[in-house]
């Protein structure tokens, strides 16, 4: 139901959704409007650090997360929504690492004595995919579809941060289905493909670009060979690596054929009948591909 009181939730954007990943945020707001979800951006949020520190002896590495949790509680909220898989993973794990140990929690609270509020340890970090599946349900998503994407074959790319390690993800770590279920709700056809859980090389894009080009070639080709028309994902770093970097792969690998890469929110927007412009999609070929499906 889109009438009535909206479902409100505190929203943590993270740095990349304000820069190269703007289209992710823009399309998320657009579909949230259709679904009557009100995302309230946290004031004075800071970067989460993007990667969860794996050291157990250094509480300081988790301070960025705790500050953000304080901002959430200042809003009177007990949940925070993320879009970016890496923010989700970092905030969720750091939050649990700190909140599960009263000593660590009080150490950090003491350190941040200038904050007016002490963090209770009770905020829950959630990803938009969880909200769609668990709070709204696929039926409600389906009811908003005005242009079913019938015939479109979509490869859902999970990568790492959305599912690993055990307990940190939005779904089963070896056999997730949340994105495929979403694809089905939009009237499109989920592709079964072998590389959906493989890593794109992540931050090695800076230090070892060739590794990422090799990963991208492998992942995109795998989706193609499995019959996909496009790939959807949930991370602006994956988007850069397996999306933007396809141009470089094509330059060095003769015969490589790319695929459009979209955020899952952009695909939802299309099925909800929104314009490409509202979803931050500029690539003409992608727009043509999807609109032809919707019209069919």
């Amino acid at each position: 139901m889109s009438s009535g009181k909206p479902r409100t939730i505190a929203y943590y954007p993270g740095c990349t959704l304000k820069t190269t990943g703007k289209a992710f945020e823009q399309s998320a707001f657009a579909i949230a409007k259709v679904l009557n979800i009100q995302m309230r951006e946290i004031e004075r949020w800071n970067c989460c650090g993007t990667v969860f520190s794996l050291t157990t002896d250094d509480t300081m590495h988790h301070i960025a997360t705790v500050r953000n949790m304080i901002r959430v509680e200042e809003m009177g909220e007990s949940e925070v929504l993320t879009l970016c898989s890496m923010c989700y993973n970092t905030l969720k794990r750091a939050n649990e690492f700190i909140a599960s140990d009263p000593v660590r929690l009080s150490e950090l609270n003491d350190f941040m004595y200038k904050e007016e509020l002490k963090y209770s340890g009770k905020v829950k970090v959630r990803h938009l995919l969880e909200l769609l599946r668990d709070d709204l349900g696929w039926e409600q998503i389906r009811s908003k579809v005005t242009k079913p994407l019938s015939g479109l074959r979509v490869a859902s790319y999970y990568g790492c941060a959305l599912v690993r390690p055990e307990g940190a993800g939005v779904d089963n770590l070896e056999d997730p289905s949340v994105m495929e279920d979403l694809v089905r709700a939009l009237g499109a056809e989920p592709v079964n493909w072998p590389s959906r859980l493989e890593c794109c090389g992540s931050y090695q894009t800076l230090a070892n670009k060739d590794l990422v080009l090799e990963r991208t070639e492998h992942i995109v080709s795998s989706a193609r060979e499995s019959g996909a028309d496009l790939i959807i994902l949930s991370c602006p770093l994956c988007e850069f690596n397996i999306g933007t970097r396809q141009v470089e792969v094509a330059e060095r690998s003769y015969g490589f054929k790319g695929l459009p890469v979209l955020y899952f929110t952009q695909l939802m927007g299309f099925a909800f009948g929104l314009e490409a412009k509202e979803l931050g999609i500029e690539d003409e070929a992608t727009i043509k591909l999807i609109t032809e499906m919707g019209a069919a």
Partner: peptide, 11 residues
């Protein structure tokens, strides 16, 4: 490079 690449690689 996206911000996320800088921050994660530096960390």
């Amino acid at each position: 490079y996206p911000t996320i690449a800088w921050v994660s690689a530096l960390r």
